[in-house]
Design a protein around this nucleic acid. Structure first.
Length: 313
DNA sequence: GTGGATAAACTGAAATACGC
DNA sequence: GCGTATTTCAGTTTATCCAC
């Protein structure tokens, strides 16, 4: 194997996998990944679960659980680990893996893809947020993804597939730790009760005029550019791409919709209608008879007082 | 090739500002 | 107070990203 001398545990026997799941359930945090078989078909199913217990990404603490066509083992994994709120589960692009691990029951999930996306580019200067890109950036490790699209439904898994599967959960904890450090720099914990209102209002007023002027210029140039590229049939210029899409809108009156559904014995339309001020006025006499959903909308807005607009900074 | 999540763009309605 | 223009907000559609 790629990691000479390591003890990556590739488990294929049900009993061993159950023991491994029980062992993994003792940790407060796990770094996980999955591989799916027949991913190009409708018959996609989970083939392998990789788990790591060491924050440093120690290859000795990697488990490869072969769960291909073993729904009872997958269920054990879900109930013991995925649905267990006491264990933090870290995935890259968690939404993909959780499709096969019962998203509805999943608890205490961390997604490194979402973490990376939330960090400003100035702190994380990468082209995209794929695992491969983050591994190269944080671990200086070129991830070979050629095995990603290999046949994960074939048995036995090749040594190259096992290496690939293990490597994902070797780099994942390192990426996770690095992202946590960047997250702390990007968004230090702030308590609104203790914020300095003088400093914030001054900063807000200093920035506002520049921002408004820049925004106007930006929108003006953008609109001119759209019109110009459209008129000149230019699809690409200086890295700016032009795209034109058309779509159809259909409208029907509610009365017609009701008439047609009744005539065709279809279920009555149950779409909610926003009760605007106008509707509220019209329905006043029967307002108390109308079952309705009510929700309070709270919005906070800021405005610079007119008599202070000209204060120089 | 598939599909879910998210971001960006777009659209229409409501609220607000403005001029008379 | 009225009519119109502009801005803001909310909801919908489209595009992009990512996993395998």
């Amino acid at each position: 194997m790629f990691f000479k001398g390591n003890a990556v545990q590739y488990l294929t026997i049900g009993l061993e996998i159950r023991e491994a799941i029980a062992h993994l359930a003792q940790y407060p945090i796990l770094w996980l990944d999955t591989e799916t078989a027949d991913y190009r078909s409708k018959n996609r199913r989970i083939a392998l679960v990789q788990a790591q217990t060491d924050p440093g990404g120690d290859p000795d603490q990697v488990f490869l659980l072969d769960v291909l066509d073993q729904p009872e083992l997958i269920e054990t994994l879900i109930t013991t680990i995925i649905a267990n709120p006491k264990i933090e589960k870290v995935f890259h692009n968690a939404s993909y893996d959780l499709r096969f691990l019962d998203q509805a029951r999943a608890q205490n999930i961390t997604c490194t893809l979402n973490m990376a996306r939330a960090i400003p580019k100035s702190l994380l200067p990468v082209q995209d947020h794929k695992l491969k890109t983050l591994a190269a950036h944080f671990c200086n490790l070129p991830l070979d993804k050629t095995e990603q699209g290999s046949d994960w439904g074939r048995r036995p898994l090749s040594p190259a597939q096992q290496d690939y599967a293990a490597l994902d959960v070797i780099v994942l904890p390192q990426i996770h730790q690095a992202l946590l450090r960047l997250q702390a720099i990007a968004a230090p914990a702030r308590d609104p009760q203790r914020e300095d209102l003088d400093a914030l209002t001054l900063a807000y007023r200093q920035i506002s005029p520049k921002y408004e002027a820049m925004k106007k210029e930006y929108e003006s140039i953008k609109e001119r550019l759209k019109q110009a590229m459209d008129a000149q049939q230019c699809k690409h210029c200086n890295g700016v791409q032009y795209q034109k899409t058309t779509s159809m809108d259909y409208k029907a009156s509610f009365a017609d919709l009701l008439a047609v559904t009744q005539a065709q014995q279809l279920p009555p339309p149950s779409l909610p209608i926003k009760l605007t001020k106008e509707w509220q006025k019209q329905l006043k006499p029967v307002w108390h008879l109308l079952p309705r959903e009510e929700a309070v909308q709270v919005r906070i807005s800021l405005k610079i007082a007119k008599d202070e607009e000209d204060v120089p900074f």
